[in-house]
């Protein structure tokens, strides 16, 4: 365990190496993702950015043939420690997927699902639940649109609204970290704009890590930016600085579109 508490970083990796079978996807990644900031990860396909994201909440290991060395501290605790309860990790680290995946139940049930799962035994009253649902939906700027049809299925919403709903359902359990894996790539430009706006709205309340293919999006919607290439971190810094005055030539070549 750490002797000094790391208050600055929500996610901290040390010597992180990851293999899919014989293929090494991450090479010695040492990253500190700062609390309360929006950090984006960019890089060409196969650079390991999604792999990194998916190892933070340990969703990768379901594949079975994944091997990991090094450590990932989330909120100052190694999530790969054998004493760690996965359910507690998932509570602190919410994940938003590329393709919106609301559950085929009502909007209200979608939002309250996580809360119910984590509060078994002491069931909240309907009024309390209403309160939680409203708060979460307000936070994702969806309340006014759906307040009259909370009983409708989550899957009936537009893609943009579905994605917002998927973010909303993470909030009632009060996570510290939100992981977003290409959250806008299934959306049209208008939906993308709306979701980016929402991400910006959540700034400061959560530590947000976004993986994106879209460089313009990283530039618009993040404060810190990580550029990865072939499983290694090439550059990490303030988003503006990284795009305006990249330190590494590989970064410059990528953001100027010479490859990727």
């Amino acid at each position: 365990m750490n002797t000094h508490a790391d208050q600055k970083h929500a996610i901290r990796t040390r010597g992180l190496n990851l293999w899919y079978g014989d293929f090494q996807a991450l090479f010695d990644v040492n990253l500190g993702i700062e609390r309360g900031l929006i950090t984006s990860m960019i890089g060409p396909s196969g650079c390991g950015k999604s792999t990194f994201l998916r190892s933070v909440n340990r969703i990768n290991e379901r594949l079975g043939y994944v091997r990991i060395e090094g450590r990932i501290d989330v909120l100052d605790q190694n999530v790969y420690d054998p004493t760690v309860e996965l359910v507690q990790v998932r509570k602190q680290v919410g994940m938003v997927f590329q393709r919106p995946n609301p559950l085929p139940i009502s909007i209200r049930d979608n939002v309250i699902f996580g809360h119910r799962v984590h509060n078994k035994g002491k069931k909240a009253s309907a009024a309390e639940e209403d309160e939680i649902v409203e708060q979460a939906l307000r936070q994702v700027l969806l309340w006014d649109k759906v307040k009259d049809r909370l009983k409708h299925k989550g899957t009936e919403l537009s893609l943009e609204e579905q994605q917002k709903l998927c973010i909303a359902r993470l909030l009632p359990v009060k996570p510290e970290v939100l992981l977003m894996d290409e959250p806008c790539s299934a959306l049209d430009p208008k939906g993308t704009e709306a979701v980016e706006e929402l991400i910006w709205e959540l700034k400061g309340k959560y530590t947000i890590l976004i993986v994106t293919h879209n460089m313009a999006q990283a530039r618009r919607a993040s404060e810190k930016c990580i550029f990865m290439l072939l499983g290694k971190v090439v550059e990490y810094g303030d988003t503006d600085a990284l795009f305006l005055t990249p330190k590494e030539s590989q970064t410059a070549d990528y953001i100027e579109g010479r490859y990727g």
Binding site: I59, R99, I105, V117
Partner: peptide
């Protein structure tokens, strides 16, 4: 669809909770 299960697991639901509710 697998996406439903993933959504549940990522909210910390156990397998059984996922099976029963979704």
């Amino acid at each position: 669809p697998m996406a439903f299960r993933e959504a549940c697991w990522n909210m910390g639901a156990t397998r059984w909770q996922t099976i029963r509710r979704v």
